[in-house]
Design a protein around this nucleic acid. Structure first.
Lengths: 294, 294
DNA sequence: CGATCATGATACAAAAAAGGTATGGAGATA
DNA sequence: TATCTCCATACCTTTTTTGTATCATGATCG
């Protein structure tokens, strides 16, 4: 079988037009080189060189093979570099899922920094409802996800990457829109719009917990599958809601965001499968850590 | 150094995800395969596989290298085929020079047939003044030339590929344009337009010889470097000429071609350097011979 | 025109590399 | 816990490659 060494030998002989000189360049004695060239010709079933008394020159077939061989050698070198780059996480691809709220907060900063530092890595970012994120990381669909902190999960690692307060969002016309001081108690009996527990358990849990701490049971009048809808429904005056404050950035003008006392906080985490060996993931984790402790 | 065998081994393992199975496919026992894979990883400095208890799977770097390796193996096979095709003359390139007169006669038929039979060979056809043709074949600029038969030349081989009569060309207004019978003697004292001896010695030789045989010395009033010009000058009524009769195909309407008695004949030959090993040339020669003796 | 020089090819022994057999070790499975 | 399935390692055998010495051939030069 033809091998790379033979291609190298061949290219060197082709370039020097001289077996002896080529052997020297290859740190080799002349006879084995002669023999390898003969073997190559035999394997191809094609004469590659014309033997002159003062050296050798390429046949037409040899000329063609020389061009191809050079390309192959360059291709091999490139393949090695590619593999090494991917191994270092400097190139390759990285699939990241995130929940919609994170898009207003941690996702832009982190991904922008990553793309800047590792431009050769092709990022695939996808927004997914929170309840599916973890499953799809476990399944291997995503290398990582950015989501609200779940409890500990076996086989999954987590890294805190940000915290956010929940804020009260009310329609412009609502009394609480203009109230001087807002107390937790004021939410008692108010019609709440919230995420169902199945969709974003951590977020809904934080809302419920807040109400219970304040001494009342939340009156949830509407649950929306799609995160984006909550603020829209508030705008339509169907109720009020507690949402991460960064959602304000993408909200219409006819709703008001108000701070609430002892506002519950939600933690954003980067999660990944502990056995995921994608080196680009390692670079992302490093970067996330570096952003925490600059 | 990485070699083709290792790439083959690697690809097979990558495709089976199983060292043992791959070894079987490769007609090899398992340990050497394990070893070659390890060596490859060591040479690259990159882990290509993750070892599971039930087999192996590619790392991100391995995935990249797998794609590249497959490409390289395919490229090598293609390179071998290319060389073989060129060696058989089925592909490659062929540079042919020809003199202008041949363009009306033997060149189209021969090249058309060749292109049809060997479509992968890229033909480079170039018209050159006859005097330069042989030099440029000897120099190696052309693999072959189509020209008027020169004397024997050392290092050059020739093959007759066609013969053509010379015809008299006169302006429409010339007495000989309408004469019933034309005799050689009628050309005596006529102003002749001809190629200089340095440009196309065989052609000029044939003209001079014809006149001398007829018992007079030709009166050449104009010599043109460019073959194409002769008929134009005849059309301009500057003189008359003896040219290969196929030139009629590319002549204006205001000249007349007349047969002459015992018309001199010129031989077209295909010439090439005897040490030219371009296999496509061998195919061209074969084809030219086949067209002579169908 | 013959001696000499340079070039690539061949012969055979030495070295290196790859392959085969036997066995170890780690994780899954029952 | 015992066993089974993998891949890795150890060690020897076989094959391949290399190096040294020598040959054959065509060019060069006195």
């Amino acid at each position: 079988m033809i091998d790379i060494r033979q291609l190298n030998y061949f290219v060197t002989v082709a370039e020097t037009q001289h077996v002896g000189k080529a052997a020297e360049l290859l740190h080799l004695s002349q006879p084995p080189l002669s023999r390898q060239i003969s073997l190559l010709e035999q394997e191809l079933g094609v004469a590659l060189f014309i033997r002159h008394p003062k050296g050798v020159s390429l046949t037409a077939a040899g000329e063609q093979f020389y061009q191809d061989a050079k390309g192959l050698l360059a291709g091999l070198a490139q393949a090695c570099r590619n593999a090494q780059h991917v191994a270092e996480g400097k190139s390759g691809s990285l699939a990241i899922g995130f929940m919609m709220h994170a898009a207003y907060n941690v996702v832009p900063g982190l991904t922008k920094a990553f793309m800047q530092q590792y431009p050769q890595v092709s990022l695939r970012l996808q927004e997914v409802i929170p309840a599916d994120l973890l499953k799809r990381v476990q399944k291997g669909d995503f290398d990582a996800a950015i989501m609200l902190k779940p409890g500990p999960v076996t086989g999954i690692e987590q890294l805190n990457i940000g915290q956010e307060k929940l804020a009260l969002v009310v329609p412009l016309t609502h009394p609480l829109a203009t109230a001087k001081n807002i107390r937790a108690k004021d939410l008692d009996q108010q019609p709440l719009i919230a995420t169902p527990k199945e969709v974003a358990p951590e977020l809904r849990g934080a809302v419920d917990e807040y109400c219970i701490q304040a001494g009342f049971t939340p009156r949830v009048v509407l649950e929306t599958q799609l995160q984006q809808s909550i603020v829209s429904f508030v705008a339509e005056e169907l109720g009020i809601a507690l949402v991460p404050e960064a959602v304000k950035k993408a909200s219409p003008a006819n709703v008001v965001f108000r701070d609430i006392p002892k506002a519950p906080r939600v933690d954003y985490v980067l999660v990944w499968r502990s056995d995921n060996s994608n080196p680009a993931l390692a670079r992302l984790i490093e970067l996330a850590q570096a952003r925490l402790n600059p």
